[in-house]
Design a protein around this nucleic acid. Sequence first.
DNA 1: CCCAGTTATGAAATGCATTTCAAGAAATGC
DNA 2: GCATTTCTTGAAATGCATTTCATAACTGGG
Lengths: 328, 328
Amino acid sequence: MADIARLANVSKPTVSRALSNNPLVNEKTRNRVLSVAAEHGYAVNRNAQKLRHKRTNTIAVSMDFRSHRQNRISDPFMFELLAGVSEALGDHNQDLLLCAPNHNDASAFRQILTERGADGFIILGQGHREKMLADCAAAGTPLVVWGAAAPDANYCVVGSDNFLGGQLAGEHFIRQGRRRFLFVGDTSFREIHERRQGLKHVINNSDQAIVFDDVELQSFRYESAHDAAVRYLDVNETIPDAVFTWSDTAAMAFISAFRDAGAHAPDDVSFVGYNDIPEARYFYPPLTTIRQDTYQAGRMLAAKLLRIIDGESPKSATIRTELIVRST
Amino acid sequence: MADIARLANVSKPTVSRALSNNPLVNEKTRNRVLSVAAEHGYAVNRNAQKLRHKRTNTIAVSMDFRSHRQNRISDPFMFELLAGVSEALGDHNQDLLLCAPNHNDASAFRQILTERGADGFIILGQGHREKMLADCAAAGTPLVVWGAAAPDANYCVVGSDNFLGGQLAGEHFIRQGRRRFLFVGDTSFREIHERRQGLKHVINNSDQAIVFDDVELQSFRYESAHDAAVRYLDVNETIPDAVFTWSDTAAMAFISAFRDAGAHAPDDVSFVGYNDIPEARYFYPPLTTIRQDTYQAGRMLAAKLLRIIDGESPKSATIRTELIVRST
DNA sequence: CCCAGTTATGAAATGCATTTCAAGAAATGC
DNA sequence: GCATTTCTTGAAATGCATTTCATAACTGGG
């Protein structure tokens, strides 16, 4: 910057002001500085800038690749979430620092902030870290979370309406005349638990006698979904006629296992998946599913975090959640 | 840091050295400093560090979310690539800056480097930017690229063996006794073009009379794959009995359209997809596909870039590519 | 007991941009 | 024509950690 200053016959502060469009600097001077800078391909050093400012204009996004990849919950839905976040941050000139935290303790998160590497956090998938996140938030770490909000959450959560998702699935089953419901998912995750609650709500409010059962998946591995289906069919005598799974991929695994056992969708069994992945539409039979507007959610997460960093306290929000009826 | 120095009764340089495990500092002193730092939750300011060092220990990863999301080529495969990159960078203590470049000109890329925001680039999907990337590389920008290498590429490319992928598909079709091949994909992408070349190679070296046709997809939109299939079947009288598509999702769309037209897989038509997404296995019928070890590729990309930054010139590499035979 | 050689530590300079504060120049008011 | 604003601009301080260079303390050899 000193060089540019010399070449443009001004001082460093003037260059700095010219480059940041500070109105204090005379227009003619600004243009001269700008042209000299462009000519010499000069760009301000962002690290020096970040060091000087209080803001780093960088947002850390925490994504648990390890469990996602190993368990292959690789519905495009995580990807869309990230895309929404990325674009919204780009629009606000924020850098996106992608973190795959190894530690699940609050201090690891806080450290990124104390290192001044970022101004705040977007947590994609709270998993079982609610307690830790609550600690972080209580300690003043600016953060927003994708997922389902605990009733007493002290941080901002953006998620779909999981209870409604469960309801929609249940009502769909009722309309199809189904009476033997099966819920598939790991309810230790709040999102999944709420979907199950929504489904049960429909059952409880129905005047029909409905049988309900669970397949409590310990992990999200998609192989395990198929295994679980096979095992379930092996052990149980009555075959359910309505299966609501935590993801489209799991639904496909169940449909496949049920078919092998002689129970065909949609004649013998109805299935509702979650996320409306592209393949759901071309699956055979085309899969009924719950769609969440994840891209919008990503944008919303970014917007809310920026407001939090600016000192506001935006409220948690719920994104659109709808049933896509196909053939199952 | 000055505060810690005062509290530990030493000077700033000593604190700095103690924190960076510099052997110059006495062990007792180091421990004292470390404990004081830990006690007060002190962490070095990374921006100041980056400013001082030549290295930023940050790698920019360029991912074209816009086209990926809009076109929904959201096979988990991009995600796995990113996961591999993220983990490998984490292992080497590198930060990952995620960029969604709006501009396709070399200067936009270079600017991130001149701003000292990153030490180098990982480009996930070169698309139609080969020329620009060649300019970047020629200008000395450290970069590695996921994709297919041009014969005269002046930069390091990691990709699967697309020619082999095409060959494997072709040989599979021959083994099934198929004679009317259809290739589906946008060959303006080098990766896709090479797969087609591999397929044609099999045809040319076969002693059978094989018919070959193309569906040249203008875009990767998965809806368009289904539309293209419908249109193709509408216009053409003879129905192919072997279809090789650029992705599993596209294969599923084609299978669906073919089924509607009365051509059933695998009896009437064979299909080979690409990527081996989780759903391929539970699709009906289970989809034969080409698997690329994308996670490994991600790790390799990261490792090679770090070597380039260190002044070496690693060669382009090809990752494992294999045929997964299921029912189609 | 003195000199050379280690070892440990600190003062000051450095990297780069921004901000405060002061001052010079120009414009306005009376 | 002089006082007062209003614009512009620059010198110096600042943010934080690292590196160089110098100095102090200590060790061992003769």
